[in-house]
Design a binder for these strands. Structure first.
Lengths: 340, 340
DNA sequence: TTGTAAGCGTTATCAG
DNA sequence: CTGATAACGCTTACAA
């Protein structure tokens, strides 16, 4: 008779309170639908038993979870942290929970996580960016789950997006760089496969180069996975292959921080000997010295707006409104006029 | 008749394949229990329909989720990121999923999240540290869910822990500080309520001060929520109230980075005018200049070990083994001998 | 206001 | 190897 104890159920509560399960259920969900007396008895029983409703059962019966799933490329750094935090806060205010998974920038993993979150009954999904296999979108449509993309605004994609124009943003920064007299430009980009942000930032740079009569094929591009150390190595590679480069534009601030460290390691002064730019304007960008000239992204606003829009979609109040948030160039000290 | 399409179920698959639901279920779980022919037919149907098993239903029937829940104080910075990443990777290898929530360092929120994760059927829970209301532990025992604490090793607590001795670690760093001739010491601590790591780090500092014949009530302590800017403000406060302080020991690296910036803002050179120490040895510690002297914590090892132990507990192969990981002082440049 | 009972989509037991 | 069928714990008409 050493049966392992099992969590109490609705039934246990009902028995202890001397009512039906339906009544207990009502107490818990819409307390106003139950007389004060019974409610008190029920709540007491709940308290004594330490009852917590079984989520799976509730989901099955109610066909709603009030939870939103989000899949981000990584939680190993700050790029998505701030926006996601705002996303979660806003969701919380609207009575929704957030479930986060990270895909480690791996499309396969992302697909698994999407399926897992959907199977778990997420009422809606937040995804980062647009680049993914068509089959994923088909699956999503089939499952009839509202999905919103963030961190990238692109019109005419299969899902609406609350984000910003990565191409335009990088274009603007590159123009500034060129205006400052730089001609030999290198880029350290994140991995481009399945990553429209990286892809479009590079495209934006090429646009600007071309627009100013320089040769786009002249810009030296190195593609790296994500991480400070990757940035450092990439920087060293760039400088050894192309010593005449006067500015290294990085696909994000983390790579840029790595690049700055690479420069320091090589005994190069930033920005005197070499300019470096970032993208995202995470906290790190101001902390490193020299502080980074970078593209400022309205992370928190994006998170909040995405939360509101996604919930609207879930509640069928919207079919998906995209919004193009404005970015801005934040000038700090890592970029300077070409003195060469 | 504009019925919104609904995700396909086991039943749909069974019909399409011309078999019973039981067979489909077997196909999906233990493929070897089904003849090759039927399996093929079933898989085809699954494919065509784009079927994904409903997680809630599965959980209800199987009474297992193969998911582990973790509640961390914040995802807004790197302190827990690295360890958690390792935790997730290890879980993945063992066939488990991870669900993460963050409590924003709020005990109430943490309790909600615990209940939510348990209700969601988490097979086991990872919590950070030990300080929480007894009622929480009672609830957990009542629910019969294995729980493990991390980031803090304390013997004799209600749950086993895979972590390190925060008190001892800070004691060691403080001894080093004192050995270097510092006598006027200040501490910028994280919020202590419900946070044993913060509490014990402060205690460790006081231990060391007392052990060296200094007056513990002489150390100026300011307690702050978490964040770079909090560290900066705290630093300014400390220096204006206690200008003779020669070293500011911070409860974690984020606060320390803030403190360094505060010093810079006040025109103080670190470490010439003032020494600053951190705790955790996150990536940021090496990036800031001067790089931080801090306590190195074996984040990844902790994450991996915690994953293995928790899964053992879930699978009833262990009743909970604690482990005390070793920390070490990482000497960089933010701490120097007292020159006054 | 409360109770009864029919699902919700799986898995698992037991026959065949 | 396969098929019925009984759980699993909850919500929600529908009745009372």
């Amino acid at each position: 008779m050493s049966k392992t104890r099992t969590a109490p159920t609705l039934d246990d509560v009902a028995k202890k309170a001397g009512v039906s399960t339906a009544t207990v259920s009502r107490c818990l969900n819409g307390p106003e639908k139950v007389s004060k007396n019974t409610r008190q008895r029920v709540m007491e029983a709940v308290e004594i038993l330490g009852y917590t409703p079984n989520f799976a059962a509730r989901v099955m019966a109610a066909r709603r979870t009030f939870t939103i799933g989000a899949i981000i490329p990584t939680m190993d750094n700050a790029i998505f942290a701030r926006g996601l935090q705002a996303f979660q806060e806003e969701l919380g205010q609207m009575g929704y929970n957030l479930l986060v998974s990270s895909s480690a920038y791996d499309p396969k993993r992302e697909e698994e996580q999407i399926r897992s979150l959907v199977a778990r009954g997420a009422d809606g999904l937040l995804l980062i960016g647009h680049d993914r296999a068509a089959s994923v979108y088909e699956y999503l449509e089939n499952q009839n789950v509202p999905v919103l993309a963030a961190w990238s605004f692109i019109e005419g994609e299969r899902i609406p997006s609350i984000g910003f124009d990565n191409r335009k943003a990088m274009f603007a920064l590159a123009e500034e760089v060129i205006r400052l007299g730089h001609q030999k430009i290198a880029m350290i980009s994140g991995k481009i496969e399945g990553n429209d942000r990286a892809r479009l930032r590079l495209a934006g740079l090429r646009d600007a180069v071309a627009a100013h009569g320089l040769d786009p094929s002249d810009v030296c591009v190195v593609e790296r996975p994500y991480g400070v150390e990757d940035g450092t190595q990439a920087f060293e590679e760039v400088m050894s292959c192309h010593p005449k480069v006067s500015v290294v534009m990085c696909g994000n601030d983390v790579l840029a921080v790595g690049a700055v460290r690479g420069a320091q390691r090589m005994g190069l002064k930033v920005p005197d000997d070499i300019s470096i730019t970032g993208f995202d304007d995470i906290e790190l960008a101001q902390i490193i010295s020299p502080p980074l000239t970078t593209v400022h992204v309205p992370h928190r606003e994006m998170g909040r707006k995405a939360a509101r829009e996604l919930v609207n979609m879930v509640e069928r109040k919207s079919t998906g409104q995209s919004v193009d948030l404005q970015t801005a160039i934040t000038k700090r000290n890592s970029l300077e006029a070409f003195a060469g």
